[in-house]
Computed example of a mutant assay.
Amino acid sequence: MTRRQPLTRRDWARALLATEIVFASNLVGSGLDWSSTTGLSDEETIALLRTLQRKIPPVHG
């Protein structure tokens, strides 16, 4: 049985990092195809990422 628990700060940081990589990287992510892949413009995505970056405190260690 799986417990349903909220993500930890570390989990949120990992999810944010993965999203940043997929957004920006043409090598291992969507990169230049981002807007056609997601329907979001680069400008919309940057605004959303900045909002999340402000809400998710950095995790060190």
Rank of each mutant, 00 (worst) to 15 (best):
T45V: 06
F23L: 12
L17N: 00
I21D: 01
S41W: 10
L32A: 14
D33G: 15
P58I: 09
E44I: 07
L27I: 14
A47W: 02
A47G: 05
N26D: 15
F23G: 13
S36D: 15
G39I: 06
R10N: 08
G39P: 06
R9G: 10
T2M: 14
F23N: 02
T19M: 08
G39V: 11
K55N: 12
V28K: 03
G39A: 11
R3D: 13
T45Q: 08
R9P: 07
P57T: 12
T8G: 01
L32M: 14
T51R: 09
A18V: 02
S25E: 04
T8A: 03
E43L: 14
N26H: 15
A18I: 03
W34A: 13
N26K: 08
R14D: 03
W34V: 06
I21N: 02
S30N: 08
S36F: 07
P6F: 12
L48H: 11
L49W: 03
D11S: 01
V28R: 00
I56A: 03
W34K: 01
T37P: 03
P58M: 05
P6I: 03
T51M: 09
A18Q: 03
L7P: 06
G31C: 09
L49Q: 02
L40P: 08
Q5L: 11
P58C: 05
D11M: 02
A15F: 00
W12Q: 09
R50V: 07
A13F: 02
R14Q: 05
T37W: 01
R14T: 09
L32I: 11
Q53R: 15
D42I: 10
S41H: 08
D11A: 11
I21S: 02
N26F: 01
